[in-house]
Amino acid sequence: MLRRVLVAGGIALVLAVLVTAGIHNLRDRRAAMQQAAAQHVDLTPVASGDAADAIPPELGRDLRGKAAPDFTLTTLDGRHIQLADLKGKTVIVNFWATYCGPCRVEMPWFEEFGKKYANDKLVVLGLNYEDGVTRDDVAKAVKKTGVTYPILMADDKTAKAFGLGDYLPVTYYVDAKGEVVDQSPGAPTKDQMEATIKKAIARSQS
């Protein structure tokens, strides 16, 4: 009798373990499916309208229509420049790096447009942002590009305030009130750049 009870108990134990395993498995699968669904992204072309200009989050925070984060940084020749001091002017804030080919392609365009629209109170600031370079390295790269506008050594705090992605160049077009009119992750064409500058200047003058 005792043997039968114990055998029945053993079988019951096996069944209990199997049921528990099944429940755990189902629970884990449901959790994994929910996680997969949450991570799923559909890459579909955007048709038109504001959504067409949407900036993917991985390319940095969208600051358009918001106040540009203020910063005080040092130029290559040791001067301090604070963004807030430039209110009343249209300011281009261009993050770049010496290793970045597209950055160095667009920098001479900023130089050209900075001079072309100087009477419209356009100011260009180049913010170098990269690890492991000295001011001399940066100065050497700047000399190659031929630009003469102020080059500032950006820090992590400033990059974080702007919400930079893992991607350069990134340019912010700031109007006279200090609001970001537009931003460009990656180098645009020269025509696109000039159109954005005109838009920012027009916003400053409105």
């Binding site: 053993g10 134990l13 096996v14 395993a21």
Partner: peptide, 20 residues
């Protein structure tokens, strides 16, 4: 014999528990 049955039951159940 009872002990053998219990051990056998546990051995049977072990792989399923591992899967979970």
């Amino acid at each position: 014999a009872v002990a053998r049955s219990l051990v056998a039951a546990l051995l049977l159940a072990a792989p399923f528990a591992a899967v979970s």
